[in-house]
Amino acid sequence: MLKIDNLHVKLEEEDKQILKGVTLEVPAGEVHAIMGPNGSGKSTLSYVLSGRDGYEVTEGSAMLGDIDLLELEPEERAAAGMFLAFQYPVEIPGVGNMTFLRTAVNAQRKARGQEEMSAADFLKFVRAKAKDLKIDADMLKRPVNVGFSGGEKKRNEILQMAMLEPKMCILDETDSGLDVDAMKLVSDGVNALRDENRGFLVITHYQRLLDHIVPDVVHIMAGGRIVKSGGPELALEVEKNGYADLMETA
């Protein structure tokens, strides 16, 4: 599904190398977790894969199936099936959440050659998905993420994911700022989307999210590289001993 090979990335504006040869493959149907200390390049990886400005790929590749992601605009990547759940979902005053969701769903449908959804069908669709995530009508009416609590913002991210039905989901520290109940709600939302045709890359600092979203593979990232990969037990090891040990043995 997602195949990253020897990816090197520097900041566009300054001569600072962030990713120094990331190689990673997430097959369809699997959940991979990336853990790592601050500044290891986890968020950069998620931004580069989704097409944010400000980065320059100096070497390597990132493919989604047989599509070269790095060649595409952010919206084309989204239409191809990439989805990034933001660590800090952006507040957009003046744009209603509902308008935003409908525009996004229809833009992707259009890009894939499907018919746009009617207002009535869309309403049914969004209500059903919102209900599962305990997102009420008021949150749908309000401007995108404006005045949302941390938990509400993250639930709104998962709602978008559920509606856009991407092939490859990247969750960038989706657990940050969540209390136990919210974490459970968000995790349930993610788990409901797990299926054999969809891949997940879950970026997190903490093992606790992985109790709820159980990964198939855990990668440890440090210094712009994947330094170790293993099963879920690797996350427990990190939780117990920290990153320092692992980085020494790597």
């Binding site: 097409g51 944010r52 605009e73 919206e75 989204a78 239409a79 990034l84 933001f86 833009a107 856009l164």
Partner: peptide, 13 residues
């Protein structure tokens, strides 16, 4: 940031 957020959801520039 707003522009990127919208585009990351598939909305063209």
């Amino acid at each position: 940031d707003m522009l990127f957020y919208l585009r990351a959801r598939g909305i063209d520039e």
